[in-house]
C-alpha cells in the first residue's frame, strides 16, 4: 500500500528541461540573439559606435557608405552608423518604458476585476469599450497633443491607452483559471483574496500576458518611432530611429541610406521580439 514509486508512471520519466527545449527552437534562438545583441548595443553604445554621434563635419555631408562611414553620413556630416547605434538606447528604452507600466497596471486591474466581477467588472467593461473603439495611434496622438510632445509625455500617453489591452487579456485569463479547482481550494482553505489572486491565479495566468508583452514591445518601438517621425516623440538632435528616418526623408532619392538603415534596425528588433514571443508561448506553459 505504501509502495508508491513515483517514477512508475506512463509518461516519459526524463523530460527535457526548458533550456533544452529552447535550444531546439531555431526561431526562438534567433529572436533571443537579435534582442540580446540589441540590448548590448543599447547599454553600451559608446563601445560599439565608431564615432561621436553628434560630431558635425561640414566637409563630409551626405556621404554614401564607405569604409570610414559604413552607413554613410547625414546632412550635417554626422556618422549614420554611430547615430543608429546610439538610437538603440532610446528605442530599446521605449520598448520597455512604453509597455512595462501599462503591463503592471493592466495586470493588476485585470486580475482584480476578473476575480471579483460584479459592478467593478461592468464599469471596466464600459471603459474598455470606450477606449478600444478609437484606433490606438489616434488616441495616443490625441493624448500627446494635450500633454505636449516629448518622450516622457509619449510614455504617459501610451501607458494611458495601452493598459486596457493587458487588463482585458488578464481578466479573461483569470476568469478561465478560476474554473480550476485549485482556485476553489484556495477559497476553501480560507486564504485571503489577495493571496489567491497574486500567489495562485496570477502566476498561472501570466503566460499569455508575457507573450503579448513581447509583441507589444515590437509595437512600442514602431509607435515610438512613428511619433518621433511626426515630431511628437523624441526631439532632434536626439538620435532616434523615427527622427533619423524623418531627417533623411527629403533626400530619399539621393541619400537613401539615411532612412534605410534606421528602418532596417526597426524591422530587425521588431522581428526579434516577435520570434521570442512565439517561442515563449510554448516554453512557459506549465507541464502536465
Amino acid at each position: 500500500m505504501t509502495d508508491l514509486s513515483l517514477s512508475s508512471e506512463i509518461k516519459p520519466s526524463r523530460r527535457p528541461s526548458r533550456m533544452q527545449i529552447a535550444l531546439r527552437k531555431p526561431g526562438f534562438m534567433a529572436g533571443a540573439a537579435i534582442i540580446g545583441a540589441s540590448t548590448v548595443l543599447a547599454l553600451f553604445p559608446n563601445v560599439f559606435a565608431p564615432h561621436d554621434p553628434n560630431f558635425i563635419d561640414y566637409l563630409a555631408v551626405r556621404q554614401p557608405p564607405s569604409w570610414q562611414h559604413p552607413f554613410g553620413t547625414d546632412l550635417l556630416g554626422r556618422d549614420s552608423l554611430s547615430r543608429v547605434i546610439w538610437a538603440y538606447s532610446i528605442n530599446m528604452q521605449m520598448a520597455v518604458l512604453a509597455t512595462v507600466f501599462a503591463l503592471t497596471i493592466g495586470v493588476i486591474i485585470g486580475a482584480l476585476v476578473g476575480y471579483y466581477r460584479g459592478i467593478a467588472d461592468m464599469i471596466f467593461g464600459r471603459v474598455v469599450d470606450a477606449i478600444i473603439t478609437f484606433p490606438f495611434l489616434v488616441l495616443v496622438i490625441a493624448v500627446v497633443a494635450v500633454l505636449g510632445p516629448g518622450l516622457i509625455n509619449m510614455y504617459i500617453a501610451i501607458t494611458l491607452v495601452g493598459w486596457v489591452y493587458y487588463a482585458r487579456l488578464m481578466r479573461a485569463e483569470v476568469i478561465s483559471q478560476m474554473t480550476n479547482d485549485y482556485a476553489s481550494a484556495g477559497i476553501v482553505m480560507g486564504y485571503s483574496d489577495l493571496r489567491i489572486i497574486f500567489r495562485h491565479l496570477l502566476p498561472n495566468a501570466l503566460t499569455p500576458i508575457i507573450v503579448y508583452w513581447m509583441t507589444d514591445m515590437a509595437l512600442a518601438i514602431l509607435l515610438g518611432s512613428s511619433l518621433g517621425y511626426l515630431g511628437l516623440g523624441a526631439q532632434p538632435p536626439q538620435a532616434e530611429w523615427g527622427v533619423l528616418i524623418a531627417e533623411g526623408r527629403n533626400f530619399i532619392t539621393t541619400a537613401w541610406w539615411l532612412s534605410l538603415m534606421p528602418g532596417i534596425a526597426i524591422v530587425l528588433t521588431g522581428l526579434g521580439f516577435s520570434l521570442i514571443g512565439d517561442g515563449l508561448a510554448d516554453l512557459l506553459r506549465p507541464r502536465g
Partner: peptide
C-alpha cells in the same frame, strides 16, 4: 475535489 489535475496549483 474531484479532478486530480486541476485541484493542485501546477
Amino acid at each position: 475535489f474531484q479532478d486530480p489535475y486541476s485541484s493542485l496549483n501546477p
